[in-house]
Simulated assay, not measured.
Amino acid sequence: MIRLYKIQEAQLKEIDVESFKDHLDEATWIDLYQPTEHEERLIENLLNINIPTRDEMHEIELSSRLYKRNNTVFTTFVMTTNVNTSTPESHAVTFVLHHKHLITIRYVDVAPFNACPTKLKSQKEDYRQGSSIFAWMLEEITDQLADILENIAHAIEKTSLEIFNSQNGVTVSQVNFKKILSAIGTYQNLLSKSQESLFGLTRVVSFIAGTSYFEGAYEHKSIQLTKQDLPPLIEHATFLSNKINFLLDATLGMINIEQNAIIKIFSVAAVVFLPPTLIASAYGMNFTAMPELHWSFGYPMALILMVLSAFLPYKFFKHKGWL
Rank of each mutant, 00 (worst) to 15 (best):
E196D: 14
A302W: 12
L312M: 02
S296I: 15
K318V: 04
V272C: 07
F287D: 11
T251S: 05
I208T: 08
I2G: 10
S309D: 04
T87M: 09
E215D: 12
L32W: 07
A183H: 11
W29A: 05
F207A: 10
I255L: 06
F297Y: 13
L145Q: 05
E219L: 09
S160R: 08
E37N: 12
L293A: 01
E18N: 04
R106W: 07
L24E: 02
E139S: 00
G200L: 09
S281D: 14
K158Y: 00
E37D: 03
E162Q: 11
L145K: 09
S86I: 11
K318Q: 13
S194F: 01
I234H: 10
V268C: 03
D126L: 10
D31R: 02
S173E: 15
A155I: 00
L308V: 15
K158V: 06
I43A: 06
S19R: 05
D109C: 07
I133H: 07
L12E: 03
A10S: 12
Y33T: 04
T85K: 03
V110M: 13
L230T: 12
L97S: 10
L293D: 04
G210D: 05
P275R: 13
Q224I: 00
I208C: 14
H23N: 07
R106D: 06
G216W: 01
W136T: 06
S194L: 10
T36I: 07
N48A: 05
E9W: 06
I163E: 06
G284A: 14
T238L: 07
I141M: 02
N114M: 02
D147I: 03
E59P: 02
S222P: 00
E258T: 15
S296G: 13
A302D: 03
P276N: 13
L305F: 15
L97I: 05
K221L: 14
H294Y: 07
D126V: 06
L4G: 14
N45K: 14
F214L: 14
K121Q: 15
E258K: 14
I255E: 03
T76C: 12
K68V: 08
N45V: 12
V175Y: 11
F273K: 15
Q188W: 04
I103T: 05
F20W: 02
D126E: 11
A92W: 07
K227A: 02
E139L: 11
E219Q: 12
I244A: 11
I208K: 01
I141A: 09
N71R: 10
Y67R: 15
S296L: 14
M57N: 10
N176A: 15
L46M: 13
S222Q: 02
I208S: 02
K68G: 07
I180A: 08
I2M: 13
H91Y: 05
Q228L: 14
R203A: 09
K318I: 06
L303P: 01
D147V: 01
V175E: 03
H220T: 04
R65S: 10
G130C: 02
G253Y: 01
F214W: 10
F95Y: 02
L230P: 03
Y283E: 12
F317K: 10
Q123L: 13
H154A: 09
A27W: 06
E9M: 00
I163M: 05
